[in-house]
């Protein structure tokens, strides 16, 4: 199975290549990609250099252009596609139908992958994208069980990529406006979720309060590790109950299920984390590389090392296991 690794900066890109990625995915430094965070991402020149580096090491480069084109400013997205093709991207990861149509028409030879943000969660949805835009691969939303994936794989004609490690969206990706409801900035339109520009931490007595826009997302008593105020990982009150209403601050880890995923027809494993540092990328990629090649009995030792890197040291198999629902 291919290992698809994140890079938010050229330094992280080199680390991912050196650590054994089969492909590295990255985006331009603007609103055309879903990790449009300050200080991250690639200029055209940086992407050119990165692709050359990857080629020398026989590694592929996927360029994520996976936000939705803003009406009236389509050129920004069209240019991103044209430039990524010109610079030699091995695949474009797209979410917007209009942009997929543009790419299929202007660059019919370009390999097109369906971003998780496109929300293709079933066979008919995938068939629609394959038939309409010639998509070669679909990245499945993190809301399917492994049996769901296996059933889907039997019905479709394109490759399947799934997220196996890193951040976890609780909501169906590409269909969430929680962030823009609280901050005016959304994943679909701006490539950000719970953006740092709207984050504030303040002390209240012995508690640390994290806020997003006008809303309190969490309160951390003294001694408890604080978290970033991602909206769906916040603590709220519902009736008399106080707790993590949507999801605990955990990250995804389905490395225990590698063999099941392979058997289900998954061809590529994706690591989330373009916003993480190069140290993280280097460590996660090198361990995952070994874990994918290892026997089932050698894997636990490798994976325990990996788990230390997870947010809050807590991980979940997420929707891949049915009981998560």
């Amino acid at each position: 199975m291919e290992l698809i690794c994140p890079a938010g900066t050229p330094a992280a890109f080199r680390e991912a290549v050196d650590a054994g990625a089969d492909a590295v995915y990255c985006g331009f430094r603007d609103e055309t990609n879903a990790r449009n965070f300050p200080g991250l991402n690639f200029s055209r020149d940086e992407l050119k250099t990165a692709i050359a580096y990857a080629r020398r090491h026989k590694v592929m480069t996927f360029v994520a252009i996976n936000t939705f084109m803003r009406a009236g400013q389509e050129k920004l997205w069209h240019d991103a596609v044209d430039d990524a093709v010109r610079l030699g991207a091995d695949a474009l990861i797209l979410a917007d139908f209009g942009l997929m149509a543009y790419t299929a028409e202007r660059h019919p030879e370009q390999r097109l992958h369906v971003s998780v943000q496109a929300s293709a969660s079933n066979a008919d949805a995938v068939k629609f994208l394959v038939e309409t835009f010639g998509a070669k691969r679909v990245v499945l939303p993190r809301i399917l069980t492994i049996p769901d994936i296996a059933r889907l794989a039997r019905q479709i004609s394109c490759e399947i990529e799934v997220f196996v490690f890193g951040g976890l969206c609780v909501m169906a990706e590409g269909r969430c406006s929680l962030s823009s409801y609280a901050t005016g900035k959304s994943p679909n339109m701006n490539g950000v979720c719970s953006p740092a520009s709207h984050v504030r931490y303040r002390e209240d007595g012995s508690e640390l309060v994290s806020e997003l826009g006008d809303y309190t997302i969490n309160r951390f008593p003294a001694g408890e590790a604080a978290g970033y105020p991602t909206l769906c990982k916040g603590r709220f009150d519902i009736a008399e109950e106080r707790g993590y209403a949507f999801e605990d601050p955990v990250s995804l880890d389905v490395m225990d299920h590698i063999d099941a995923l392979r058997d289900a027809g998954v061809g590529a494993l994706k690591i989330e984390g373009r916003q993480r540092g190069k140290a993280y990328v280097a460590e996660v990629v090198s361990i995952m590389r070994r874990a994918v090649a290892a026997n089932a009995d050698e894997r636990p030792a490798l994976l325990s090392r990996l788990r230390r890197l997870s947010e809050g040291q807590k991980t979940t198999s997420g929707a891949y296991e049915k009981r998560w629902r």
Binding site: L144, V170, A172, R175, C176, S177, L178, Y181, W324, R325
Partner: peptide
């Protein structure tokens, strides 16, 4: 009320 998000998981049942 604006439908803002949908999940495979049911937060309502969970609550």
């Amino acid at each position: 009320r604006v439908p803002l998000a949908i999940s495979a998981r049911c937060a309502h049942a969970r609550s």
